[in-house]
């Protein structure tokens, strides 16, 4: 039987399946295996505005496509900033792109960090490794509306000092009044003046009011698990903890099934989840 579908139900993205050409405005090496691309529309065709925490699908002509979180300032919608780890068949050649090169972009997709809901609260941001990239837009938003929040704490862990992302920004944020920044590494040589140890060790030392805190966490799942335990121990409730999940994302629009996580699709129900809503599944293995 024929079916008529309501055309009002179409998505906010014009055709969410087709990449739109964007041009590399700036390519910058971050660490030995990460780099940041700043993109602008190649033919004036903009994408819908993104919210902190969302991601795009970046396409390298003929090679393939990868899901990459947006790591730029949400107040600047003209430039799309992505920090990418060169690990696969698509991201390795992407690392060699120079200014002027063209990429395909689809997006933005996914759920945002609760930056507005967090107003009035203290905000604790905990990042592990590349997990700082999807949290940076949230941090920009918090800083732009600094007076709307209580204390803001950024805790960040990386493997070694040379794996620390955005180190210049970290130091700037650290000296900026009203935001507490602490970062740590897993291992370091003698000349390192910073902290050594896992990111969880920073939590109990940070100053915030656990009862009125919104926590935003992004990093490997195991890191998030231990961070959540530490926050819960201090009295932060699960409704106030938000985590960004990573799963294999191919279509980004809920059709391909790859990013299923229990009853959710990470691409459209996530990647940012309120912890209490996925807690039973987050605690299971192999889901």
């Amino acid at each position: 039987m024929a079916l008529s579908t309501d055309s009002a139900m179409t998505s906010p993205v014009a055709n969410p399946m087709i990449p739109v050409p964007w041009r590399v405005q700036k390519a910058r090496r971050e660490t030995r295996d990460t780099f940041t691309l700043t993109l602008r529309p190649a033919n004036g065709e903009p994408l819908p505005a993104f919210a902190p925490g969302q991601f795009n699908m970046l396409y390298l002509f003929g090679v393939g496509e990868v899901a990459i979180s947006i790591s730029g300032d949400p107040a600047d919608q003209e430039n799309l900033v992505h920090t990418i780890r060169a690990v696969g068949t698509v991201t390795r050649p992407m690392q060699r792109l120079k200014r002027g090169a063209v990429l395909g972009v689809r997006g933005p997709f996914g759920s945002p960090w609760p930056v507005e809901e967090a107003e009035g609260n203290d905000v604790v941001i905990v990042a592990g490794g590349l997990g700082l990239a999807p949290l940076r837009p949230a941090l920009y938003r918090l800083l732009a509306h600094r007076q709307q929040y209580g204390r803001i704490v950024l805790l960040y862990g990386a493997r070694t000092p040379r794996d620390l992302l955005y180190q210049r920004s970290l130091d700037q944020w650290q000296t900026r009044s009203g935001i507490e920044v602490a970062y740590t590494v897993d291992a370091a040589a003698e000349d390192w003046r910073g902290n050594v140890g896992v990111v969880t060790t920073l939590i109990s030392k940070a100053r915030f009011d656990p009862v009125h805190t919104t926590a935003m966490i992004c990093g490997p799942e195991v890191m998030m698990r231990y961070v959540i335990m530490e926050l819960e121990k201090l009295g932060v409730t699960d409704e106030n903890i938000f985590i960004s999940m990573e799963r294999n994302m191919k279509c980004a629009i809920g059709f391909c099934g790859h990013c299923q996580f229990g009853p959710t699709f990470v691409c459209k129900d996530g990647p940012v989840f309120r912890y209490d809503r996925i807690e039973p599944f987050f605690k299971l293995r192999g889901v």
Partner: peptide, 13 residues
């Protein structure tokens, strides 16, 4: 606990 977490590089794959 911290040493074990360091052992598995929890900050990155």
């Amino acid at each position: 606990e911290a040493a074990r977490l360091q052992l598995i590089n929890i900050h990155g794959p």
